[in-house]
Write a protein that binds this DNA or RNA. Structure first.
Lengths: 223, 223
DNA sequence: GGCCCTATCCTGGTATACCAAATATAGAGA
DNA sequence: TCTCTATATTTGGTATACCAGGATAGGGCC
């Protein structure tokens, strides 16, 4: 899940990760202008990887770049997060719908196995494994959807959301409920019921959405 | 719609456009490796803008870049196109659903006006205006959805699909049918019927999808 | 004769220098 | 004093040179 875990090779990628963290953490406030030379100096590198990193962040939607203008940090308000979750829900729902139609028996079995693993993980109190398993569960559904493009996009979106998700899941330990929802999705997939699979998945992802709404109400006035 | 029309400023952006065209046109075959120096020489520029362009194309999903590896042209088979349309349909459907819930009366009126414009455009036989108007119709719905992220993503996706769309719409002149479908979407939005709006929109976009299926059957064996 | 190891080349990643556009600033004119 | 303009400075875009990692080919070993 961690994009920049250890096996980093290029400075640009590492920079992108660092800057993303800073933006998400709010150390770089929205609207702030990012000077390439300044960043380069701060990290002790040249401007070249900084540019690549900024380009990457721009494609991730974290900064905005216009020709001949400084890159500016985008408004990372929680509303935008909710919007991203809304899109994620739609895409995951599509994946579930497609998977219900096209998923192979082997993949379905693998999915059931992951589902059981998650159950064990919860029962044995190993919440640190949850994230990875949860990702695998969804990942298998993307694969089963037989739509490579969708898989990529949803992967990308999840990647962009991952910092928030971790924060979110840490805060409200909803693993049990999530597991139940997984169970319902799995059942729908087994039945090959496209509509129900899509609906359950949408609901499942949107639950996180509702948490965000809750959090927004909690400490609003960020964005 | 034309991303690179006239007001080009940076070489990198122009390069990205040219390379995208070549890839779409098949002059750069899928799987082909793109040597940065060679491309730079071919276009008479340095490697720097080539790198930026390649990065751009990578984020557009047209090429694949791995560290220390040459960028390779992605398999741009028609199946992938279908997959992109599938995702587009899902996103547009979400937009319509949100729009039915949140769209302002003013935007709805604007939408109706565009719809009429398209009707006139068809009646008076000005198919060259169709693309722009059609885009506006959908664009207003994105705006009405009140989800900036969704709007950006769907915009991006449409941009990536635009070459195919033009080719597609030129080939099979389905403007009339499309206009009727627009009418149904508009009606659903006016009624504030989320589910129907989403469904009509999904169907509408997926119609293009079906054309692609047809085309694929016609001259398969590309990807 | 085939497989593995190594050396060389090739290519992408990075650093630095230069150029041009955009903005800030200061001065002159109204 | 305000505004318009011209200039200076800032800063992103581009070019070039250098470095390091991966690929391939050749030779040595089994």
């Amino acid at each position: 899940m961690d994009v920049n875990s250890g096996r980093e090779l290029t400075i640009a990628a590492r920079l992108a990760g660092s800057l993303e963290e800073e933006i998400v953490a709010g150390q770089l406030s929205p609207g702030q202008q990012l000077d390439e030379r300044q960043i380069a100096e701060r990290f002790g590198v040249s401007r070249t990887p900084v540019r690549e990193a900024l380009r990457q962040l721009a494609s991730a939607g974290l900064v905005e770049m216009r020709p001949r203008r400084k890159a500016v940090v985008r408004r990372l308000d929680k509303q935008r997060m909710v919007q991203m979750f809304e899109v994620l829900a739609s895409l995951e729902s599509l994946a579930a719908e497609c998977a219900a139609r096209r998923m192979s028996a082997a993949l379905l079995a693998a999915l059931a196995e992951i589902h059981d693993d998650i159950g064990r993980c919860i029962a044995e109190g190993r919440p640190e494994d949850y994230d990875a398993l949860n990702y695998q569960f969804h990942r298998i559904i993307y694969d089963g959807a037989g739509n490579g493009y969708l898989s990529e996009q949803v992967d990308l979106l999840r990647q962009h959301l991952s910092p928030y998700r971790r924060w979110l899941l840490q805060k409200m330990n909803r693993m049990r409920q999530s597991h139940e929802e997984h169970g319902r999705i799995l059942a729908a997939l087994k039945d090959g019921d496209e509509a129900r699979a899509a609906d359950e998945m949408r609901r499942h992802v949107r639950d996180d959405d509702r948490f965000l709404d809750f959090l927004m109400a909690q400490d609003s006035g960020d964005g």
